[in-house]
């Protein structure tokens, strides 16, 4: 018996020293690809309303590997992503579980949910083309395809092609036009770049302001963020925001979203949080604080975002686009887009 006793004691001790996740306390654990400070206000609101504590672990890479390795012991309840490809990757690697919730189904339109209820989009964001107000003005009819035409030579700025936002755009072009045409297009865009892909989306807008280029690819919410930042407001004021492909396929739209982890230890709380994130309160906050488009139809975008006008979005299912993710990454290597 003493051996068993020692064993129990040391196990208990180990459990104490580890950052253990007791199921007694009301909490929910999130692995987040999004910076914690962006979602903290929303989580604080949730804690206020429910008394459930939200723990966030933020990293931009490797979280999927971590959750996969942790297996049935993973402390993660939810994973928040900033793009569709990771939602699909989590699902296809069997790291998620289905959520059957009336609330989620009511709040989130069906094109923004997985048909098998494995992932749910929370906000949408458009991949816009920003143009220099001073040198070209607004260009309402511009398309992504235009970016490859010779008259744009030396006028385009973008962040690394390998960034999920760009990979997803390229994947959508592959989904629409096939790989061969997409490759010709990507080569054309590369030939038109004003400089090697670098920096983030904001840095491209800054480059337009500085006169380094006339057009830049960037997500819509960065414009709102820059207008709210004293140092960056002058960058934002130097550009017009354009919604591409309005007369053709519609603008490429990506999503931020959430999955319930397969082995979520706090499943009930996690679903509560998912439902909260799709509710009017949270959707409104996403819209007002982060300038994203809420997925819930009844919630309006912020005044500023609404002032950019309505737009036609690409109707191709996101899952179809996500399927081309790997092909897009390889295409980027083939045309040496970032080099």
């Amino acid at each position: 018996m003493p051996i068993k006793k020692i064993f129990t004691h040391s196990a208990a001790l180990l459990a104490l020293t580890a950052t253990s996740f007791s199921t007694l306390a009301q909490e929910v654990n999130i692995y987040s690809f999004r910076q914690a400070f962006l979602i903290e206000p929303i989580m604080e609101k949730f804690t206020q309303e429910t008394d459930i504590k939200v723990n966030i672990l933020f990293a931009k890479q490797g979280l999927i590997e971590r959750i996969k390795r942790e297996g049935e012991l993973s402390p993660a309840d939810l994973v928040l992503t900033t793009d569709i490809s990771r939602l699909v990757k989590l699902t296809s690697q069997d790291l998620t579980q289905a959520v059957h919730s009336e609330v989620l189904n009511k709040n989130i339109p069906s094109q923004y949910r997985d048909p098998d209820n494995q992932w749910f989009a929370l906000t949408t964001r458009v991949r816009n083309i920003y143009s220099s107000s001073e040198r070209v003005g607004a260009v309402k009819d511009i398309t992504y395809q235009d970016l490859a035409s010779p008259e744009f030579k030396g006028k385009i700025c973008t962040r690394s092609g390998k960034h999920p936002y760009n990979v997803s755009l390229i994947a959508s072009i592959i989904a629409h036009e096939g790989e061969a045409k997409a490759k010709v297009w990507l080569e054309g865009v590369k030939a038109n770049l004003a400089r090697k892909p670098q920096g983030n989306d904001r840095a491209q807008v800054k480059a337009v302001k500085d006169g380094l280029c006339d057009y830049a690819l960037g997500n819509n919410y960065y414009l709102g963020k820059m207008l709210a930042n004293p140092k960056q407001v002058s960058w934002a004021e130097a550009v017009s925001i354009n919604f591409p492909n309005q007369k053709t396929t519609g603008s490429h739209v990506n999503v931020s979203g959430v999955v319930l982890a397969k082995y979520a230890p706090n499943k009930e709380n996690a679903i509560k949080l998912m439902e909260f994130l799709s509710s009017d309160v949270a959707q409104k906050m996403y819209a007002e604080v982060n300038y994203e488009y809420p997925v819930k139809v009844s919630v309006q975008p912020s005044k500023l975002v609404a002032s950019w006008g309505t737009f036609k979005a690409d109707t191709l299912p996101l899952a179809e686009i996500a399927k081309q993710h790997e092909a897009a990454v390889k295409l980027l290597d083939e045309v040496k887009f970032d080099l």
């Binding site: 020293t17 580890a18 996740f21 390795r69 942790e70 049935e72 012991l73 402390p75």
Partner: peptide, 29 residues
Amino acid sequence: FTSLDLWLNRQLVEFGFSRVGLIFSGSLF
């Protein structure tokens, strides 16, 4: 370390103890 944790927890469950979680891979260790 996740493999070690998974193994350890399965052993514990097998011998009738409760799980201790990710004591190596989920801690400062």
